[in-house]
């Protein structure tokens, strides 16, 4: 018997357990960002960490919550490419600010 959960479309949205674990990771990462902000931490290393966290969180949203992990490759690549480009250019602008 083939249940609806074994169809290709069912597999694309993962399991409740996986969704919950990802939620917990995302919340923990948010707490880390908030702690950095409240602690008044600054500097290039902290900024790199902030955007590494943002990139990690965004990747989980793109691949798992948006379910692009099982979409044709062009789609996750485009979304991750957007994240990479935006985070890199923010980093470049931050570096420019240090130099001036």
């Amino acid at each position: 018997m083939q249940s609806s959960l074994s169809s290709p479309r069912a597999s694309s949205h993962g399991t409740p357990r996986r969704a919950a674990i990802i939620w917990a990771i995302l919340i923990a990462a948010t707490m880390l960002t908030w702690t950095i902000g409240e602690g008044g931490k600054a500097g290039p290393v902290v900024t790199a960490l902030l955007f590494a966290i943002a990139f990690g969180k965004g990747s989980l949203i793109i691949l798992d919550y948006m379910a692009l992990r099982r979409a044709p490759l062009m789609w996750p690549m485009l979304a991750l490419g957007w994240m990479t480009l935006v985070c890199s250019l923010i980093g470049l602008a931050y570096w420019k600010g240090l130099a001036t």
């Binding site: 960002t33 966290i53 943002a54 965004g58 949203i61 923010i90």
Partner: peptide
């Protein structure tokens, strides 16, 4: 909407 906020928050509220 969520994804965009994940960059907006560190960029505007935290990055120093």
């Amino acid at each position: 909407v969520d994804l965009v906020w994940l960059i907006l928050f560190p960029l505007i509220y935290v990055m120093r």
